[in-house]
Nucleic acid binder design. Structure first.
Lengths: 143, 143
DNA sequence: GATAAAGTGGGAAAAAGTGGGGAAGTTTGG
DNA sequence: CCAAACTTCCCCACTTTTTCCCACTTTATC
């Protein structure tokens, strides 16, 4: 499980170290690649272990192409994804298109979400939810 | 599987490099040609590996000619298709009619969609879906 | 404080992408 | 029917990006 938040520097070549805690999780599953994709709602990236991504992808591929919204969604979701391999120093190279999307310049914030994690530009990350009340209201429907 | 987005320059002769990741996929299937056609709903091109195209074509051929919309669909879809071979540098020459259709001038954006991919003029591509709310509503019906 | 682990930076080789020359083949116009 | 103009294709050369490797600094651990 990916937990916690870690800030790491992005070097001149666009590389970032994966937090060692996250790396352990991946190694535990015998994986040394990540599927990296842009989030659709917020300016951040989402990182999946490969197997986890394939599940997700399968679900989405199955949706009907004839529905316009589905097509747009697929287009953005699938095309956002790029496989990144982890180098011997435990880093990934963030593909330029994704780097640009999430405005990752100097520092990346790794945000654990359990089965996946997000990568934010430290500058864009908000330490607290902007509207905690709204969250409460919605959560009441589910919990 | 075609994934990711890659922007490549179009040179004076109308050639573009196919992203190496996409080329790998094609090589894996032992193919060095693409079937290129214009999309019907958006100003972009759609590229199929040959075998994938043949399936698609078969499906469409089977539709009933007696329905007006089907005829129009066939007319545009089938007649738009052109086979493009990949040269030794990993490029294709985009046929003028298609180039014009998708307004491909200076830069082409390759958009991976899994079993096929799209080619957009970078100028026309929208980094985010225009109506995320609508997409959410539709997705909720299916997921 | 010593040792190990994690994170950071950069150099060099390989791969990917880009641009252009020129031969072969097509089209256009006299 | 022939020549000029253009397009397509194949080749080579250059630039940029990516990958792989080594080394250094900082942080954590005992």
């Amino acid at each position: 499980m990916f937990r916690g938040r870690y800030a790491h520097a992005i070097d001149g070549k666009g590389r970032v170290s994966i937090p060692s805690k996250f790396r352990e999780v991946l190694n535990g599953r015998g994986q040394n690649t990540l599927m990296l994709t842009n989030d659709l709602w917020d300016p951040c990236l989402v990182a999946f272990p490969l197997d986890r991504w394939l599940e997700e992808e399968k679900k989405i591929q199955a949706l009907p192409d004839l529905v316009r919204e589905v097509r747009v969604y697929k287009r953005h979701f699938i095309s956002g994804a790029q496989e990144c391999s982890i180098d011997r120093q435990g880093r990934i190279l963030i593909p330029p298109s994704l780097r640009e999307f999430a405005q990752l310049n100097r520092e990346a914030l790794f945000v654990g979400l359990g089965d996946k994690f997000e990568i934010w530009s430290t500058d864009l990350w908000q330490p607290r939810p902007e509207d905690p009340e709204a969250i409460l209201r919605v959560l009441q429907q589910y919990l």
